[in-house]
């Protein structure tokens, strides 16, 4: 029997169904995901490659790029270490209130970014709880790097923990218990046994955390103060340019962010294809 004439398996869809559904799926993705992405690059290059690059070499753009990287470089490791501690504590031990703890860790994920910025304003703003004391001691939180980092940490808080918890609870405690019974200390158990098991999932979580940290807009916008060249991150700089009638420049910076997003997607897919088994089975963010 030639493949052409082979009857369809009963669980296979009719070829026409296949065609229609595939077209709908691809069309939907093209319309809602691909077109916006193409628009970014198209508008960025509307006045030529040179002017796009010039927009990125503006001092304010450079400082925004630097600020975004600095913020991510602080926020992401903090959340990675926290995620590791939280996952260890939640998956290796049983205690009362564990479910509540897991829920609490998830909170920032469902809080509006604007609210995340607002809460730090209420504490560290000059009219907030600690504002005056901080100013008396010459400490700047909001409208400066620390506030931007705090808001970013809040928004990206659960990313690493959420990747690690399902994987580590799936892996169980046997290996660690064996290591400890053989006399290994807690730290060397973590380093020699646990980390090798979860390294790809950890990397995966860090990657998502980093993408969000570099791109956060709402929360950072509330605490930044919008001082050009000082407290404007890349996404805020996009907004500034957009409001200054500099559309091509705004899209040039946006295109840089889009490129970073594509790189993130590339590494992410690579991790998924190579180490699918070593990253938790379900990826829900």
């Amino acid at each position: 029997m030639t493949p052409m004439l082979r009857p369809r398996a009963p669980t296979d869809d009719h070829p026409l169904t296949k065609l229609v559904l595939s077209l709908v799926a691809v069309g939907f993705i093209a319309l809602f995901l691909l077109m916006p992405l193409v628009t970014v690059f198209w508008e960025a290059l509307a006045q030529g490659m040179d002017s796009a690059i010039a927009a990125l070499r503006e001092p304010d753009a450079l400082s925004a790029i630097q600020l975004s990287f600095t913020v991510a470089a602080i926020a992401v490791p903090c959340n990675a270490l926290f995620g590791l501690a939280a996952a260890w504590c939640v998956t290796k031990f049983d205690f009362i209130g564990k479910n509540l703890l897991v829920t609490l860790i998830d909170i920032p994920f469902s809080v509006s970014p604007v609210v995340s910025g607002l809460v730090y304003m209420l504490i560290f703003g000059l009219q907030g709880w600690l504002g005056q004391d901080l100013r008396d001691h010459g400490i700047k939180i909001v409208f400066a790097l620390p506030g931007i980092v705090l808001a970013t940490i809040f928004v990206t808080f659960p990313f690493v923990a959420r990747e690690l918890i399902p994987l580590m609870s799936e892996q169980g405690r046997d290996e660690e218990e064996a290591a400890v019974s053989l006399g290994a200390s807690g730290w060397s158990t973590l380093r020699r046994v646990t980390l090798p098991n979860i390294k790809w999932a950890l990397l995966y979580g860090v990657l998502l955390c980093n993408a969000r940290a570099m791109g956060e807009f709402g929360a950072v916008s509330v605490v930044s103060g919008h001082i050009r060249g000082l407290t404007d991150t890349m996404p805020l700089h996009v907004e500034v340019l957009y409001n200054d009638y500099q559309y091509a420049a705004a899209f040039a910076v946006a295109a840089l962010l889009a490129l970073l997003a594509l790189v993130t997607l590339g590494i992410k897919s690579l991790l998924e294809w190579q180490f699918a088994g070593e990253i938790a089975a379900t990826h829900s963010h």
Partner: peptide
Amino acid sequence: RAVIDGLD
């Protein structure tokens, strides 16, 4: 508002 809130 931002200056009142501590923008320096």
